[in-house]
Simulated scan of single mutants.
Amino acid sequence: MINIVGQIMLYVNNQEESVKFWTEKAGFTVLSENDNGAMKWFVIAPSKDAQTSIVLHNKEVVAKFSPELNFGTPSLMFFTKDLDQLYKDFNDKNITVGEIVNIPGGRVFNFADNEENYFAVTEIK
């Protein structure tokens, strides 16, 4: 039985710029920076105690080791307790955001990272 999603691999073209986006604009924390000589990766999360983290891998380097992998961006849905405030914060930080829309489960908006990968945020109560 699987009990939790531990990590999500996000393959990016520029790790340093992606780390800056996720930490400086989206408010994530770097949990670790790892380098085994052959490759380097960053583990980030919304907070130090988050159950799920995102691992930022260099797409080009990983493709050399595992060309069979799917390097497409995963469709990620983030949760927030204050959608309006997060929307304002993202706009203030010049993050590309879509309109807030109503869906059967509540309200949601999408946003793009520095590499124009799109993600979504929905409000939880």
Rank of each mutant, 00 (worst) to 15 (best):
V61P: 03
N70Q: 04
K48C: 07
F28W: 02
A50V: 06
G98N: 09
G105A: 07
Q51N: 11
V62I: 15
Q51C: 06
F71D: 01
T96M: 11
S32N: 12
Y87F: 10
L83F: 07
K40C: 05
S75V: 09
L76F: 07
Y87H: 06
F79Y: 11
N94R: 12
T96C: 11
N70L: 07
V61L: 10
S32T: 12
L76C: 10
F28G: 00
D35F: 13
V43L: 11
L86T: 02
F71H: 05
G105E: 13
L31G: 01
N94Y: 12
I95V: 15
T96Y: 06
E60T: 13
N34S: 11
S47W: 06
S53I: 00
N36T: 11
A50W: 10
E68T: 13
D49R: 10
A63H: 10
T96W: 04
K64F: 02
A63N: 08
A45G: 12
F90K: 00
H57S: 07
F65W: 09
N34C: 09
G98Q: 08
P104M: 03
S75N: 13
D35P: 04
Y87T: 03
N70E: 13
F28C: 02
V30S: 02
K88G: 05
F79N: 06
L31H: 04
V62Q: 12
H57M: 12
S32F: 10
L76I: 15
D92T: 06
E60M: 07
T29A: 09
L31T: 00
L31Y: 03
F90H: 03
D89W: 01
D49L: 14
D35N: 15
I103N: 04
F71R: 02
K59N: 10
V97Y: 04
I54N: 01
F65G: 05
A50L: 04
L31P: 02
V55D: 02
S47A: 14
G105L: 08
F65L: 15
G105M: 09
K81E: 14
I54M: 07
K93A: 14
V43G: 01
G37D: 04
K64I: 01
N58D: 15
N36S: 06
P104H: 07
V43E: 14
T52M: 12
K93F: 08
S53E: 08
F79I: 08
L31W: 01
K40R: 14
I44D: 03
A50K: 09
S53T: 00
F28Y: 05
F79T: 08
N94E: 15
S75I: 05
L83D: 01
T96F: 09
T96G: 04
S32D: 13
Q85P: 00
V61I: 15
N34P: 00
S32H: 08
G37E: 01
V55E: 12
E99P: 04
I100Y: 05
F71T: 01
N58L: 04
F78A: 02
T29I: 14
G98F: 07
Q51T: 13
Q51Y: 11
E33F: 06
T96N: 13
